[in-house]
């Protein structure tokens, strides 16, 4: 367990029976949220359990499925492979924050139009990864989309329609 000197650093706010808790202030889907968390809390658990944003799924224990993908400062990140304390001061977008006042985000629209989902478990992470991918790489072709989404596994669709949707949204 961490020793008392930590308190001198001034960022750890108090001690609970299960250890230190610290305050994290993060903008999630445009809203500033300030919550006390244990440093070991994964961002995925923070979003789901503390903020009730259960659109972000958890599909594995090995950082390999991508179901938990969110945007951190505009770039895709696996929220199961980040700690909530690491996003203190950052800007996080989850699937719940993607649609605007005028309706679905173009990527969500394209997934809908192209029938790019079946059970939907991978979909929130897939959509967030795709939004980041299209923003990061210009001139994507089908191979580029497949490579760019290699960190997101889908057990249902066979990927064909996902690739179609991402290409449609990237136009």
């Amino acid at each position: 367990m961490p020793g008392t000197p930590l308190l001198e650093v001034g960022r750890l706010v108090h001690m609970t029976p299960w250890g230190f808790v610290m305050e994290v202030s993060v903008t999630v889907n445009g809203e500033v949220r300030t919550v006390d968390v244990e440093p070991r809390t994964l961002l995925a658990h923070f979003l789901r359990d503390e903020l009730g944003l259960t659109g972000t799924n958890i599909g594995c224990d090995t950082s390999s499925c991508g179901a938990c993908t969110v945007l951190v400062d505009g770039r895709s990140a696996k929220s199961c492979t980040m700690l909530a304390v690491q996003v203190d001061g950052a800007d996080v977008t989850t699937i719940e924050g993607l649609a605007g006042k005028d309706g679905l985000h173009p990527m969500q629209e394209a997934f809908h139009e192209c029938h790019a989902l079946q059970c939907g478990y991978c979909t929130p992470g897939m959509v967030m990864a795709a939004v980041s991918l299209v923003d990061e790489y210009s001139d994507l072709d089908a191979d580029g989309v497949r490579e760019g989404l290699e960190g997101n596994l889908c057990r249902c669709t066979g990927y064909q329609n996902i690739v179609k949707a991402v290409l449609a949204a990237s136009e």
Partner: peptide, 24 residues
């Protein structure tokens, strides 16, 4: 799985990182 309990400090520069490692 959830990681084991851990303490946390932020070091926003090389100096702070070296100081934190020395201290802890």
């Amino acid at each position: 799985m959830i990681p084991a309990a851990v303490g946390y400090v932020r070091a926003d520069s090389t100096e702070e990182a070296v100081a934190a490692l020395r201290e802890h």
